[in-house]
Design a protein around this nucleic acid. Structure first.
Lengths: 170, 170
DNA sequence: CCTGATCTTTACGTTCACGTCAGTTTCTAC
DNA sequence: GTAGAAACTGACGTGAACGTAAAGATCAGG
């Protein structure tokens, strides 16, 4: 097997910044706040070295921040839970824990997940509601346009470029 | 008909703050930034007087800020569009606009709505994806718990209070 | 009409989430 | 081994989104 359990850290902070589309400053700041559970290795010189897993975690942190719209402080709470989950997984990987303990750990993990799911779910509901409202307003407007076009047909030539309005690149 | 088109403004800034669950400072700040399209009336004294419609608009602004996670600057852009829509509605209410103009106005309104919908839609998709991921992780954990309980039955008494983990009030 | 609560503007203070600079050290390439 | 790029640790700066304090004007109730 040539796939090592944990790849050797080889990425420098600038590389990580580019890969995660952010800056070294932000990475150090997040580390300072404790948002990045496992600190980077620092062989010999003081330079931080990261793995791809670190990049993924960083991206996930930024994603949560973006999607949940929470402060870095609140985010840390959530990630502390995540970290606990990681610890749980580590302990679970060893086969020498008794079933009672195993169950306790799994129940904890479940609690952490549920906490995040709860947050996400609330937001999703709110967003869905907003989306629905906007969609209905949109429908009404479109209906009025159709009515206008129908009534005006023969009198004014309908200008049929409505669908293209309000589109963004992508 | 005893329902006036526009109710007389009677709410003071402190009332509005309480109704919208914010502070007078924030309201003045938003007004300063131009986030509140129609400025409050100021009869005789310099005190601002608001209507319930103003409260609703303020709440809507705060809601958008919360749900879309945009800066007040970006939010202003969106609300400027909203304002334009309002102006459109006002012009449309008068019956003396010719159909071509009417159609143009409606098309504009549609564009503004689509712009907001686009934003909301993107976010909703991202959130849904996150939710799905979390849900699947949750399933896996629950499955492991069930397996554990099944295997342990007879040896250890299963502790069946897992569903209650990580719940919040409401 | 008087008093206390609420409002006004002006202005400075604060927290968050980084940006930026300085001086030094370490890595990479030649 | 030496130049240049990148990283290190402070430290101070900054824009956004308000909070807070001051000094005065205004409003609502008795």
């Amino acid at each position: 097997m040539s796939a090592p359990e944990e790849a050797i850290p080889t990425l420098r902070i600038g590389d990580v910044a580019k890969l995660a589309d952010t800056t070294p400053r932000t990475i150090r700041y997040y580390e300072e706040l404790g948002l990045l559970p496992n600190e980077p290795s620092r062989p010999s010189g003081g330079h931080r070295l990261y793995t791809q897993a670190d990049v993924d975690r960083l991206r996930e942190v930024m994603r949560l921040k973006h999607l949940l719209g929470v402060s870095l402080g609140e985010l840390k709470e959530l990630l502390t839970a995540e970290e606990a989950r990681a610890a749980v997984r580590a302990e679970l990987r060893r086969d020498d824990v008794n079933p009672a303990r195993r169950r306790e750990l799994l129940a904890q993990a479940l609690g952490h997940i549920d906490r995040q799911l709860d947050l996400v779910h609330r937001r999703a509901l709110e967003l869905a509601k907003l989306q629905k409202e906007l969609s209905e307003t949109r429908k009404r407007v479109k209906r009025r346009i159709r009515e206008l076009d129908a009534h005006a047909s023969g009198t004014y030539a309908p200008t049929p470029d409505v669908e293209a309005a309000g589109e963004s690149r992508s």
